[in-house]
Design a protein around this nucleic acid. Structure first.
Length: 545
RNA sequence: GGCCCCAUCGUCUAGAGGCCUAGGACACGGCCCUUUCACGGCCGCGACGCGGGUUCGAAUCCCGCUGGGGUCACCA
């Protein structure tokens, strides 16, 4: 019998930007498929009409493309567009008596659950024995209903390939779960089983939160006669404090800060709602229920209203890392090591090497904390090992999500130059910030008062700068080498250390104490702009005196 | 709380009974390089959660405890 081709998938729900956990799930599934020469499918699980947005889907795809995790299905699958297919199967199950309508309201279920909790027993939902009359009654009063799957009561188990262990659920714990919601949409549990089967998925790698859900899925597969894919549940990625790193953390932070804001300024939720232009009902619901989340645009207006800057939020979105100037190659390498390793001391790997080395056996069982310092180190190494040509492309991609950067005006040739000039940089953002002095107008240089004080007002900084200006106007060959030669001569003559001269020039042309090599910087700026900046800086000195 | 999963330096981990005086990477400390910021080089600090077994021998196997996490939705 021929080996079956591996078909893996990533099935996110579009409720916001792609977060680190999701990205790792996508990466592992993608690696699994690519390693085996199989297929990798992408499916949009948007059965939650209230939380799913078109914008989130666009963002998700954009992040996945940036990471280079390309999918093989030409047509994207949207679950929301497949309701007739799900309904046909659900109707069949109902007709066969293997699924049924349930009429309890959320409140009634809540009460039942609380009662069970009080009696310290687990609430298990099993099919209630309704009479024909009761059902007619519910229907005629127009009671909304859900459809539940009548899970055959027996022991279930499956082998988890990540834990390398049997996961079991005894008969006493199975319960009838909802497969179609009152709004007519299938639940995740139902749609996922149907779609995985229909697209021939052979391997499912997903977060550990699904460990027990899988039992439900298996019960459904058995009822529908579907094959059972191989399941592996990935360990959780944690924040540095040990809590789960997920999209909820951001929301949690925004909620907390909103509460402090209301306390500090003695404002009500209504006033907060008014301040950010959201309905107060929506906001009240969100503030009081930690399970509710704002979508991205709502989050943004609330943050603005309470003055919570983006930079205060923990970076957990792939988009944030892209925006902060991380390279996809280093990010992927770092991400891959969160819960996986090829064995031995191997750590730095290209994407191709990851594909080559990946295996399910290499996935760990314990949770991992997300260490930004290590990510930074990976990024630095990745940048150092990339050819300038390729980095120009990465930089363009970075600039696309940082439209405010002056580097957007630079030519590819100039970007190349600054990349070589700043070799050793840690992030593209750092490269951006330390080289933007080349791409802004001379008049727009912001002189940092602390730099002026420390470098120019002390140690005869202004005087030295004046002398240097006198020398520079006479330099005919405006090259880094020639400039270096002339300034070294000056240092010799005056018995000065190079630093005493270089720093004043640096502040004059950049406004700060940090810039690329001073000689290369002057060459890049050119004679006129360099002299102009020194002059405008000297003017600052005479004004101050 | 019930059920479930996990457990090696601060962090990510190597380790599948003797190769372990426990290896690597990041972080941290020191030194060197240096016109700033970085980069780079060298050195150092630093862990098998605890208690019982099994074995000639345990980080590795078993049990208990402890700790951490997940999950208990008409969210995925």
């Amino acid at each position: 019998m021929a080996e079956k081709q591996i078909i893996a998938r990533f099935a996110p729900s579009p409720t916001g930007y792609l977060h680190v956990g999701g990205a790792r799930t996508a990466l592992f599934s993608w690696l699994l498929a690519r390693h085996a020469g199989g297929k990798f499918f992408l499916r949009i699980e948007d059965t939650d009409l209230a939380r799913s947005t078109e914008q989130a889907t666009v963002q998700l795809l954009d992040d996945l493309r940036w990471l280079g995790l390309h999918w093989d299905n030409a047509e994207l699958i949207y679950q929301s567009k497949r309701t007739p297919i799900y309904n046909a199967i659900i109707e069949r199950l109902i007709a066969e008596g293997r699924a049924y309508k349930a009429y309890e309201t959320r409140e009634e279920l809540d009460t039942l659950r609380k009662e069970a909790e009080k009696q310290k027993r687990t609430f298990i939902y099993r099919r209630p024995q309704l009479t024909e009359e009761q059902i007619r009654g519910f229907e005629s009063e127009g009671r909304p209903s859900v459809v539940r799957f009548a899970v055959p009561v027996k022991d279930y188990s499956y082998r988890d390939v990540v834990l390398d262990k049997e996961v079991t659920m005894p008969a006493g714990q199975v319960q009838d779960f909802v497969i179609r919601k009152a709004d007519g949409m299938p639940t995740y549990h139902f749609a996922v089983v149907v779609d995985d089967a229909e697209t021939g998925i052979t391997h499912v790698l997903r977060g550990q939160e699904h460990l027990l859900n899988t039992i439900n899925h298996i019960a459904l597969q058995q009822a529908l006669g579907y094959p059972q894919p191989i399941y592996g549940h990935l360990p959780v990625i944690e924040n540095p404090d040990g809590s789960k790193m997920g999209k909820r953390d951001r929301d949690k932070m925004v909620r907390q800060r909103s509460q402090t804001w209301m306390k500090t300024f003695r404002k009500s939720v209504d006033e907060l709602a008014a301040a950010c232009g959201l309905s107060s009902a929506r906001l009240v619901e969100w503030i009081n229920d930690s399970k509710k989340q704002l979508d991205f645009s709502e989050q943004a207006v609330v943050m603005q209203a309470i003055g919570l800057p983006e930079s205060d939020l923990p970076e957990i979105m792939v988009h944030d890392f892209r925006k902060k100037g991380y390279l996809r190659e280093g990010f992927l390498n770092f991400l891959s090591l969160l819960g996986w390793n090829p064995g031995g001391d191997r750590e730095r790997m290209s994407v191709d090497e990851l594909v080559q080395l990946f295996s399910i056996e290499g996935i760990g069982k314990s949770s991992a904390k997300f260490d930004r310092a290590k990510l930074l180190a990976f990024n630095t190494d990745t940048a150092a090992s990339m050819p300038a040509e390729k980095l120009v492309g990465s930089l363009r991609s970075y600039l696309a999500v940082n439209p405010g950067s002056p580097l957007n005006h630079a030519s590819d040739a100039d970007l190349r130059k600054i990349i070589e000039m700043k070799r050793g940089f840690r992030t593209l953002r750092e490269l951006d910030e330390t080289t933007r002095l080349f791409f802004i107008a001379d008049a727009d240089i912001q002189y940092d008062p602390a730099a002026i004080e420390k470098v120019l007002k002390k140690n005869d900084g202004f005087a030295i700068l004046g002398d240097i200006h006198g020398i520079l106007v006479d330099v005919a060959d405006w090259s880094a080498a020639e400039l270096e030669k002339r300034i070294e001569e000056f240092c010799q003559q005056k018995q000065l250390q190079l630093g005493k001269v270089a720093q004043p020039i640096r502040v004059a042309i950049s406004g700060t104490t940090v810039s690329p090599s001073i000689f290369q910087s002057m060459e890049f700026l050119g004679r006129d702009r360099t002299l102009k900046r020194i002059e405008q800086c000297l003017a600052l000195g005479s004004k101050a005196n």
